[in-house]
């Protein structure tokens, strides 16, 4: 089985998607001949031609508007937004159009073929505008699916599933891991399920929940906690919308404790939604308050990025607070 980094896995998934279905198109800023600023779309234009893989003008609302039209027409556009921080000019097209296309027409029309890829997250000295994690804005929008992979194997399987899914999918890629995360990835075409969390390490004292780049940080925290005799169950949520309440609830019913971590700010972050739901589902089984380890309620900083980010040390402290409550 070949070893790939996360970018190679994404490139490989796009290649397979375009190869297996002539209705799949890839486009965005610098996506064509150059292959994207991160090179996620390398060689796709050479292989599939300029009509199926191309540069767009620098206009995010235009990219997603165009993609909505293509999807409504029956194609399967995979539109790239160069950084998740720049997705907001397209907010209207995503929230008012992509998400509501099927509902408002009573299924006469839909844009299920649409996938929007966007690199997200911090840890790359990107400051305010190359670091954000905007998943919670979109999680408030019925009609969208939101997926965040944690490693190359997951990225390939989840992206192929997203492209072929009958609903519009936002696919946020942890850009800190683009080259840092490597692993074995099957060459073949495979899909991983959307809307299903994965228990990646079983444990009995506390449930740790994260997604994307934060899974790796959480696993590191779990290792440290285990050394102090705390048995951690680690779950990768994988899909933010719809999210897998059942898997998380079953775990918390067993451990009685939950620590959720994401890079985005605390207030209005998706951990709040999870905490409320798990409090409803597991109230009598909870041994301590649900802990949230997140970014601060500030814009994303540059020089003090390390202080801002919810790293493994902060998660370990939250685990201990949960245990010692």
């Amino acid at each position: 089985m070949p070893t790939m980094n996360l970018l190679q896995a994404i490139n490989n998934a796009l290649d397979i998607a375009m190869e297996s279905d002539p209705r799949v198109l890839c486009f965005g800023e610098d996506v064509g001949g150059f292959g994207g600023v991160f090179r996620a779309t390398s060689h796709l234009q050479e292989k599939y031609g300029r009509e199926r893989c191309f540069n767009t003008p620098l206009v995010e609302q235009g990219i997603i508007g165009f993609a909505n039209g293509l999807a409504a027409q029956g194609h399967k556009p995979v539109a790239e937004i160069q950084f998740a921080d720049y997705i907001f000019p397209a907010f209207d097209q995503i929230v008012n159009e992509s998400a509501k296309f099927r509902y408002r027409s009573g299924s006469l029309f839909e844009v299920g073929g649409l996938t929007i890829r966007a690199p997200y997250g911090g840890g790359i000295s990107g400051g305010l505008y190359h670091s954000q994690s905007p998943e919670a804005y979109f999680a408030h929008t019925p009609g969208l699916k939101i997926v965040v992979p944690r490693n190359p194997h997951q990225a390939k399987g989840l992206l192929l599933a997203a492209i072929r899914d009958p609903d519009p999918v936002l696919f946020f890629e942890p850009k800190r891991l683009y080259r840092a995360s490597t692993g074995e990835v099957p060459e073949a075409d495979y899909q991983l399920p959307l809307g299903e969390a994965e228990v990646i390490k079983e444990g009995s004292d506390v449930t740790l929940l994260a997604w994307g780049a934060q899974v790796e940080v959480t696993e590191k925290a779990a290792e440290l906690a285990e050394k102090e005799g705390i048995s951690c169950e680690v779950i990768d949520l994988r899909s933010i919308l719809p999210w897998d309440v059942e898997t998380v609830a079953q775990s918390v019913l067993k451990t009685g404790r939950l620590v959720i971590s994401h890079e985005a700010p605390l207030t209005g972050g998706f951990a709040g939604e999870i905490a409320a739901t798990i409090a409803e589902r597991c109230f009598l089984y909870l041994e301590s308050p649900i802990q949230r380890v997140t970014g601060l309620d500030t814009p994303f900083p540059l020089t003090l990025e390390k202080e801002y980010l919810p790293n493994h040390l902060k998660i370990v402290e939250a685990i201990k607070a949960s245990i010692d409550f």
Partner: peptide, 28 residues
Amino acid sequence: GSAKLHYMTISSPLATQIPQAAGYAYGQ
């Protein structure tokens, strides 16, 4: 809206249909 008559269901937000039309036509 009518799929059989090729008339896209109306959406209240103004102008959102215009870039969609460009994409739809590109698909055609």
